[in-house]
Design a protein around this nucleic acid. Sequence first.
DNA 1: CCCTATGTTCCCAA
DNA 2: CTTGGGAACATAGG
Length: 254
Amino acid sequence: MPELPEVETLKRQLQEVIIGQQVRAVKVFDPKLSVAERFPKGKVLQIGRRGKILEFIFEDGQRVWLSLRMTGRLLWGNEVSEHRRLTLVFSEGNLHLIDPRRFAALSFPQKELAPLGVNPLEGAPPSFFEGLRRYRRPIKSFLMDQRFVAGIGNIYASEILYAAQIHPLRPLSRLSQEEWDQIMMSAREILTEAIRYRGTTISDWRDLYGRPGEYQKRLKVYGREGEPCPRCGTSIRRIMVAGRGTYFCPRCQN
DNA sequence: CCCTATGTTCCCAA
DNA sequence: CTTGGGAACATAGG
């Protein structure tokens, strides 16, 4: 599913296409998304992103949050493809929500709730790491916890820890400040690079125009079990961390 | 039939 | 309170 770089790609493309346009009609094809009937019919003022959540901001101040979950995608255009769950009819075109597994969710936030973690593109404030000493959970599961760090998912967590040369099972409480800083720096570099390549297409991800991303060609460890580490040649390993497939180099990452 | 899958949430147990 | 495991959601592919 879309992580930060994929959602950011959609956000930027939507800004080019629907800012200033008015939602004329909403067609709902999945009863799970019947809440979409309440979609504001006004003019879209801005598109935002909070971690992996896409935010539509309307002229009158109303907001809609879209969480794409595992297989959700947005498609601009006329062609009716498989797995269409929702269509927003704009003055100058149609925006379709495509979602094979039907996990995507819409919400209409009443106020500022759902405290989100730090933005890994900006980095954490200097004091952030100080408050984390008590957590002994593996660094990888921490990086993916949206309450602490917003936007990192399963693919980029493995890639970030590989770049930072930190073992995914290392307890947070046993990281030094320098190692934490290194992880945050790697996160920024990798996510920024992934945005530049319009995200990672392993199976479902496509951008607003249906094109696959390019970052999958640059993945160093994710999905590469048994292949040689690009740094030292050791065979990449796969383990389960918090129930998710996790890839790392047993020699480079400690 | 088995396992896996870019996510989130909830229940339960240690 | 912390953490992880498992299940659930629902569908497709190897």
